[in-house]
Amino acid sequence: MVNTLAPKAPAPRPLGRRPASPAVEGRARHRRQSVVAYLFLTPALLFFAVFLILPLGFALLLSLSRWTGFDLGDIDPVGLDNFAALFADGATFLTPVLTNTLLFALGTVALALAGSVLVATCVDRLRFQGLWRTLYFLPIVTTVVAVGNVWKYMYEPGGLVNGVLNALGFGSVAFLADPDTALPSVIVVHAWASLGSAILILTAGLKSIPESYYEAAALDGAGPATVFRKITLPLLRPSLLFVCVTQFLTGLQSFALISVMTKGGPGDATAVAALEMYRRAFSYGDWGTASAAAFVLFAVVLAVTLAQLWLFRRKGEDA
């Protein structure tokens, strides 16, 4: 019955089924459409009820309780004790865990932003852009277990990175085993893995800058550095903001890579908040403080995101 239709040419109404009043028909159809709509939405709404709203409530309850994890009747409310425990004297959550988290996010954003601006402005001038994009995209479609293990292996004394250092006459570096170099080492890997999408967004942003601006600048005799500072960078702002915010978001919550490469070690050198939450919950069964840690991290994520949006907007008004 569907193959009879042509767009924008409504078929004539079948005579036999014409109802008495258009208003009555409209209302009936409206009601029928509402029922169908909720039928179509049922799977999604059921899912959100059980796997979004219920878990959020449950997590909030756990963050305010002490619980052994077995009988749901044994949940023991303790008020804000779990949050207090996270920030008590001698607790590791504020330093080094939250500090590591911020350093990790800041480091990856800085590296990924610098690298992607450099590569994107260069790629924009080349042919075979699709080929380059494909290469830079390989890490993004690769599982974190592969990325983490390959880099972990490359950082080892007998691995590729030290092999290159030795060949150049430098001594070996114990990248992941030394508390001083462990965090920077995983930051490099995370930035390496997220470069492709940042380049993609920035390349799209560069394409939207009108060619005539560059031509006008060339006529005025502006050098490449001036063109970059006065034209490219300001007009790339929306894309830069987007990359910045999304990379910060993923950087603050990421822990799969660290759990594969260092498990937070050596000591607490690479322990980040989400990993700490995971360990407290699933290694120690400390559901209360783990849930509290999750909400604290959530608050940090929200605050950092809003701060960036505010900063960029304020700067935009100044310019």
């Binding site: 219920l54 878990p55 997590a59 919550q253 822990f255 995971y278 919950a281 999750a294």
Partner: peptide
């Protein structure tokens, strides 16, 4: 963010 849900999802 997804990390909020690991614990409650697993317990559920």
């Amino acid at each position: 963010p997804p990390f909020l849900f690991f614990i409650p999802h697993f317990l559920i």
